[in-house]
Amino acid sequence: MTVKIGILSVAHMHAYSYASAVNALPDTELLGIADHDQARAESAAKTFATRAFGSYEELLAAGVDAVIVGSENVRHRPLTEMAAAAGKHILCEKPLATSVADGRAMLAACKTAGVQLMTAFPCRFSPAMVRLKSAVDNGDIGKVIAIRGTNRGRCPFDWFTKLDQSGGGAVIDHTVHVTDLMRWLLKAEVTEVYAEISSRMFQQEFDDTGFLTLEFDNGVFATLDSSWSRPKSFPTWGDVTLSVVGEKGVLTLDMFSQNLVLYSDKTGGVSWSPWGSNIDELMIAAFAKAVASGSPLPITGEDGLAAAAVSFAAYASAKAGKPVAPEVVL
């Protein structure tokens, strides 16, 4: 069957990539786009050859099977609650919520409505990450001791740096992907977070730099650089890397290293041209397949909230100047 998908807000740039994936996949159909910014909805609808709806309610009533929430972070909760009430399965952009209370409300709304909630963590679908996980699961490096992770990027500005819409700067934006990968890999929860956070890159009210140290309930320790520290001139948007240190070896992941290097006199610079697999498309395909078959979604809302809670703990740690335990969300 074809899964009919609606997109609730395209405020987040990832929503464009998801829309493109929905159009590209054989068993999904992009039924339409709604946005509280009508002009943005219409412009995106034109780009993806679909219909712009005048309101979220109209789109939810138009016969979609599932929705993608691609709004500003603080709107994840109301849009998820609205979609759940309409009986639609939901793929929500990360971070799932900007507070534990909002996240719990989202989980409760979906449970009450009997719909499934998935957090958009496309990195789990990276073939290199899948390969790394299978090596860990296979015991290739024995017991895992420590992980060094990074998720850096250029500063996205726009609403991402407006705290009343984003809930935080670089740390909330870039902690969750790699924290999720670590939780998934270790099958363990974070028990302690220490963070050094600064705003020295842009000297504004939002945080742009975060170095986190995590301790897991199985004794593994990890660090994560979640900074917006790539300059405009960096040859690509950023990175996701992991170095997983085990008793019998080390596994390294550089998720977005499959690139051509382009030296261009047209742009006057060096850029990397990616040729790796499209992980957004792999994620949308897995979401749609689970919706179509009625099977559990591969990533849950709980996963999203657990990762977001680590970013909240990072802010609390930086404020307190000492390690902090994240709120237990599950």
């Binding site: 290199a128 090596a135 520290s229 596994l251 550089d254 290097v261």
Partner: peptide
Amino acid sequence: GLLESNFNQPAGVPFVAALQ
């Protein structure tokens, strides 16, 4: 800007297993 040495080069090899 960003200054690096042997840190972010695209190796085209996203997964490496170094085993004892």
